[in-house]
């Protein structure tokens, strides 16, 4: 019955609905480009969500741990073999995502008899200057969103990943006003925590049209931070070292939080 085009479209729509429901509770991740690099940040109770991919590339993901792991391994393999045969400078996030990951995810999504990837990923590649930072969001169906300038959109130096589109858009709206790319680490840690909080709050309210009040966001942040840990990592802009990824501990980050 799937052979009929209409049935196929219906099957795909059902599958999309199913995956969206599975991803919906995913705790948000924010990535912000700043003066000295790129910060990835989330607040999590359970498993690790931010990972090193290659010298200048990191990723954050929400979804099924098995699928995240397979995609993470694939990304590391591809980047490592490319870096080995050519040079680290030739490893390109754009190519990794556009050419290798996206087609495979699209394929898995559209093969209605096979299992799709239950994962949504956010990649970032640190550049020599903040203007060269690249952020790419990859959806379970292979769809790619970038921070690059298009006719419809100005270039952004941040990206957000969340369980629902509404939550992500609230985070992006907040970062568009609050975040500046010449900020220092302390400022971006606070902006990222605000973005996480607003995204997390939106996940819990079904049909909020208006963004939550600022005071409510702060209160939510405080509550969440009492029983969950901050998970964060940096891609440092410092060119004197080849490997730019460095994870930040909760203990390092707590003193930077401002009220």
């Amino acid at each position: 019955m799937i052979e009929e085009p209409y049935r196929w479209v219906e099957a795909i729509a059902n599958r999309r609905e199913y995956i969206e429901a599975q991803l919906a509770p995913g705790s948000p991740i924010a990535a912000l480009g700043y003066r000295d690099g790129i910060l990835f940040l989330t607040v999590s109770q359970t498993r690790q969500k931010i990972f090193e991919v290659y010298d200048r590339i990191a990723m954050g993901a929400i979804g099924h741990p098995g699928d995240i792991e397979r995609l993470r391994m694939a990304a590391i393999e591809l980047a490592s073999t490319e870096g080995f045969t050519r040079a680290a400078a030739d490893v390109s996030l754009r190519r990794l995502v556009h050419y290798s990951l996206s087609p495979v995810m699209k394929n898995a999504f559209e093969q209605v008899y096979g299992a799709p990837y239950l994962a949504r990923m956010l990649f970032a590649e640190v550049g020599e200057r903040p203007e060269e930072d690249l952020f790419l969001r990859v959806e379970y169906d292979g769809e790619i969103a970038t921070n690059g300038a298009t006719y419809a959109q100005a270039r952004q130096d941040f990206a957000a990943l969340s369980g629902t589109q509404q939550s992500r858009e609230q985070m992006e709206a907040l970062l568009a006003t609050e975040h500046a790319q010449d900020a220092n680490l302390e400022t971006v840690v606070n902006s990222a925590l605000d973005a996480w909080s607003i995204g997390h709050m939106t996940l819990q309210t079904d049909d909020a049209k208006e963004p939550p009040e600022r005071a409510a966001v702060r209160k939510h942040r405080e509550e969440q931070l009492t029983n969950a840990g901050i998970e964060a990592a940096l891609l440092e802009r410092d060119a004197s070292r080849a490997i730019r990824y460095r994870s930040l501990s909760d203990k390092e980050l707590r003193p930077l939080i401002r009220d």
Binding site: I76, E77, E82, R95, L96, P103, V104
Partner: peptide, 13 residues
């Protein structure tokens, strides 16, 4: 075929 092609037989484990 590109040098970098997606491989389903992950050895990462």
């Amino acid at each position: 075929r590109s040098l970098v092609a997606f491989d389903q037989n992950f050895s990462g484990a």
